[in-house]
Computed example of a mutant assay.
Amino acid sequence: MTEPEVAPVIEVHDLGVRFRRNRRGRRSIKSMFADSSRRMPKGEFWALRDVSFTVQPGESIGVVGRNGQGKSTLLKLVAGVLLPDEGGVRVNAGVAPLIELTGGFVGDLTVRENVHLTAGLHGMSKARVAARYDEIVAFAELEEFQDTAYKHLSNGMKVRLAFSVVSQLDEPILLVDEVLAVGDRAFRAKCYKRIDELLAEGRTLFFVSHSEKDLLRFCTRGLYIREHRLVLDAPIGEVIERYNADNPS
């Protein structure tokens, strides 16, 4: 008997997104409607163009490329933080975004209040937050700071708290953008172990990193972004080899 075909959890087709070279970032809605031609308006550039791929449930994908080529932009498009100008992104499961970790926290609220607020904004029920609260705070090593205002935490404490909250989400897709490059060695080891546990549960990983060691540890497949386009979709070792050949040290 033929097994039923499994639908991809991420589908990207002919994806393109463009930005302005100024502080305003994306174009205004007014300018988007005003520009009915295919010409590139002055001061704009393509951050990504003609990108297509699919991701199956349980795959571990590493995104490779030099700085400024669109890797983090791609993660934000998958997360739904940005909208494409061309093509589309279809995500058929919930995402746990480990990107821009400290975003969304409120400085004047305490650690305790921020855990409940941020986890709730990510869709975790009040009962589930309450059940996991002690584990979240313990993982972040902030038991003694639960009633401290978030703005008074060190940068390292903020990162630990953010990773701890988001890594407790039950979403099938984990989006990770360089977060393992922060924090001290002991906390990074805890992060590695936590990601290993999530992958063992069958989660799908979409991982941006410059660390060959991390990419080879967590990923089996790679996407190489060069000059804002996808130039190679292959096993992670082959992608890293091609990247190093294109960018000799």
Rank of each mutant, 00 (worst) to 15 (best):
T2V: 12
T2R: 13
T2N: 13
A7I: 08
A7P: 04
P8I: 03
P8D: 05
P8T: 05
F19S: 05
R23S: 14
R23A: 14
G25W: 05
I29H: 15
M32P: 08
F33Y: 14
F33D: 10
A34S: 15
D35Q: 15
G43W: 05
E44S: 12
F45M: 07
F45V: 10
A47S: 13
L48E: 01
T54P: 04
Q56P: 13
E59F: 10
R66F: 04
G68D: 00
Q69P: 04
L75K: 11
L77S: 11
A79L: 06
L83D: 08
P84Q: 14
P84A: 14
G88K: 13
V89N: 07
V89T: 09
V91Y: 09
N92V: 13
A96Y: 08
L98V: 11
I99P: 06
T102W: 03
L109P: 08
L109N: 10
N114I: 04
H116A: 09
H122V: 01
G123F: 01
A127I: 05
A131V: 00
A131N: 01
A131E: 04
R132W: 00
E135V: 02
E135Y: 00
I136G: 02
V137L: 02
L142E: 01
E143Y: 00
F145P: 00
F145V: 00
Q146S: 05
A149E: 01
H152M: 09
H152T: 08
S154T: 03
R160I: 01
L161M: 01
L161V: 02
F163E: 03
Q168H: 14
L169V: 04
L169M: 10
D170A: 14
E171I: 00
A181Q: 06
V182L: 14
R185F: 12
R188W: 01
A189H: 07
A189Y: 03
K190Q: 07
K193S: 12
E197F: 10
L198R: 12
A200H: 11
A200Y: 06
E201H: 10
E201D: 12
R203F: 09
F206G: 03
H210A: 11
D214Q: 13
D214T: 12
D214H: 10
L215V: 02
F218I: 02
L223N: 05
Y224A: 06
I225W: 04
E227T: 15
V231P: 08
L232T: 03
G237S: 03
G237K: 04
I240G: 03
I240Q: 01
E241V: 03
R242P: 07
Y243D: 07
N244A: 15
N244I: 15
D246M: 13
P248S: 02
S249Y: 10
